[in-house]
Write a protein that binds this DNA or RNA. Structure first.
Lengths: 217, 217
DNA sequence: CTGATTTTCCCCCGAATGGGGGATTTTAAC
DNA sequence: GTTAAAATCCCCCATTCGGGGGAAAATCAG
């Protein structure tokens, strides 16, 4: 049984091209194509496609928003964003919005069907230029922040120190921490002194910020 | 001018194999190889390679950490992670750490030089399983939080209050904030009193935690 | 113009914090 | 069994915070 495809594309000549390209594919079936995103959910609901090829610049709802809608309402539908080139930010947003992949409209003709099949198999074909862009995203500050989660700097805090740091982050005073941990006030002070040393900070605010941002706790 | 390569690999027979494979490549020059990650930055600094081939399981600093170091200190150096197989998670972490690509050590011999050249040209050969992980990353909550419109509770902080809150989060004392903002100490106190009221907190630690976690600032 | 909000500043005072010294006991490692 | 680290507690003391009162400009919206 072939995979049903819906095409959203405002350029009719591209629609024609796709029709031709997909016509003699046994595994793929182009059910319908639309030049706008009107009645989006109704159309999806009606055709129940396996794949949606979505032009990123379609109107009135743009391809990214449409992707978000489809990914939210029909998570089993794979959305493949169609773009021309040099639209890094948009492609990135589209992937965030739930797109399963990303294709260049000006790719060599025979590759298009293969790309669709590939994505259906769970692959994620990326042209080198796109791969480079995605890879570049791994090096942005935002991504680094994300992966600070995985990369947790080790400040060699002892279990007790971690416990107390957590309570500090939770907003407890020294006194409250003491009673919470069933230890003396002075002990709490000692631990916190040690924590500050190890984290290279000098006050609660820095300690809390560091603990949260670098996921020390 | 050939691209200079440094090899970090603890298996000496693999080092020998790479030497042979890269010996008759005009575009590639294997400068040196090391069986550990001691003196990492010094070595990079000395050889100034274009490419580093980094075994993922090298010691004492593992390949991922080493990659992070190199990517941080020498962003122009491309790091290619060398892995055996079935180490998707590690490979993924390596990419997050800033690797430019990865290669299978047991790849057909003639492919190795090609893979290096490919990555040098900016390509990014990615296996389906890795690609899937990359894609999955785009759908994580963390990413959505970062890039999608997110629910930010509105505490109605005035611009000045936000500014001061930022400085609080940065770990500045009242006095430092005063001098930073060119206002009096008492004014800072007033603002902070107001901030605490609005955020429903009673001390810096709570305020900082809330500001960061709820992205108030 | 008028009222509301923001920003600025002030005093008082008790409580909390941070840094500098310690010391003892328990636990873990070698 | 010695050594090292962790966890506990103590004192002193200056500084910083936090909450309670204000109040006067400056800015802004209607």
């Amino acid at each position: 049984m072939p995979s049903k495809i819906l095409l959203f594309e405002d350029n009719t000549s591209i629609i024609e091209a796709y029709k031709l390209l997909l016509a003699d594919e046994d595994e793929l079936l182009l059910c319908a194509s639309f030049v706008n995103t009107d009645m989006l959910t109704e159309r999806i609901n009606h055709f129940k496609p396996d794949v949606v090829l979505m032009d990123i610049n379609i109107q009135p709802v743009d391809g990214i928003e449409a992707t978000r809608t489809i990914a939210g309402r029909f998570p089993e539908v794979k959305v493949i964003i169609q773009t021309i080139f040099d639209e890094d930010d948009k492609v990135f947003s589209a992937l965030c919005a739930g797109a399963s992949g990303y294709m260049l409209k000006n790719a060599p003709a025979e590759n298009i069907a293969d790309a669709v099949k590939d994505i259906l198999r769970g692959g994620f074909p990326m042209s080198p230029s796109i791969a480079r862009k995605v890879l570049a995203l791994f090096k942005t500050d935002a991504m680094r922040q994300l992966f600070a989660a995985r990369h947790t700097p080790d400040y060699q805090l002892s279990p007790r120190e971690k416990e107390i740091l957590k309570l500090l982050v939770a907003g407890l005073s020294y006194k409250m921490i003491a009673s919470e941990c069933h230890i003396g006030f002075e002990t709490v002070k000692s631990h916190i002194k040690k924590i500050y040393e190890k984290l290279h900070v000098t006050c609660v605010s820095e300690a809390v910020a560091k603990a949260i941002q670098e996921r020390v706790i």
